[in-house]
Design a protein around this nucleic acid. Structure first.
Lengths: 172, 172
DNA sequence: AAATAATAAGTAATTACTCACTCATTTATT
DNA sequence: AATAAATGAGTGAGTAATTACTTATTATTT
């Protein structure tokens, strides 16, 4: 991985996240990254290849975020960890791109949220919730909405929000 | 409002919602609507004007959805109504466009969610919740995530999801 | 006939992508 | 060790197609 290749990936991630995939042209990426436009196609074949390379790197970001939470043994600890995920988001650019992208393709989002869904199903089953599937869907929707709010609206009272949520699941 | 003007608005709404604003060209809208491309610019000045016209119509959709809920007097009824909003979504195309759009501009989304936010603040204050602001943000995030899930993933157990949510707010 | 609706055929700029090429480094052959 | 061959990074100037938008003209209402 050469230095210019890295710069292309970084700039493209930022621009895709801020202006959308269709709203970002390869020529602008090249200009911003300080490379020739041809280099993008030499390394990534085409624009979609560039996006795929970005999302490939993103898998590691997601793994780093989910991993410690999902390998917990206590179901309450897993649930707490999942609910806290949006509050511990690190790489905003990547998550923003992922969330924006899902309105056009669900491919990327689905493959990343699948392990979360599976874990939650186990959690709610072990905790004897009445309807684990419905409960799972609700939590997924909740953390989805929370991440969206944190990325886009940047609310200031994050600690209080977290507290309010944990109490709803009796984890306060 | 001529018939062709209506058709342009309908087709543009659908295409913007499905492929995004930047992913939809005026020439494709015209072809799909069966009109000349120039007519779009005669009626709406430019592409952004077309979007504005769509969102202007959308205001009525939002008002029709929010209105009955927000004019309720009992705070519990308001809360219940707000939480049920995603499950009663009617015009999926419009909501999908609104939700997709907010990753590029928050203008449209903010002006529509403002009355909701205000109402929820009053609700949680009157219900003596510990932190009404945080609680409001959480509900907004929740219905945002729910709407997203319903539009994109179309979960089948909507009734159970609704039930699980209402119970968390002691409205079961 | 006046005004508006609608079209067809343009425009310049931008789009994703290709091509021919240079240059530096690495590998293979004498 | 010297030289030749091959490879891969990088560029700049192209390409045809598409973009948002304009203008002149024709059709349709009022």
């Amino acid at each position: 991985m050469t230095e210019k290749q890295q710069r292309i990936l970084e700039v493209a991630l930022r621009m895709f996240a801020e202006h959308g995939y269709d709203g970002t042209s390869t020529s602008k990426i090249a200009r911003e990254a300080g490379v020739s436009e041809g280099l993008i196609f030499r390394h990534f074949s085409n624009k979609e290849g560039l996006l795929n390379a970005i999302m490939e790197q993103g898998k590691q970001i997601a793994r780093a975020a989910y991993g410690p939470v999902l390998e917990q043994t206590d179901p309450r600890a897993v649930l707490r960890g999942v609910l806290e995920l949006p509050f511990n988001m690190q790489e905003h650019h990547f998550w923003r791109l992922l969330y924006a992208l899902k309105w056009q393709t669900q491919v990327y989002d689905h493959s990343l949220s699948a392990p979360l869904k599976h874990a939650l199903l186990g959690v709610f089953t072990r905790l004897n919730y009445a309807d684990p599937e419905a409960e799972t869907e609700v939590v997924l929707a909740l953390i989805d909405g929370l991440a969206t709010a944190i990325i886009l609206r940047k609310p200031h009272n994050l600690q209080h929000m977290k507290q309010a949520i944990l109490e709803k699941y009796h984890l306060g």
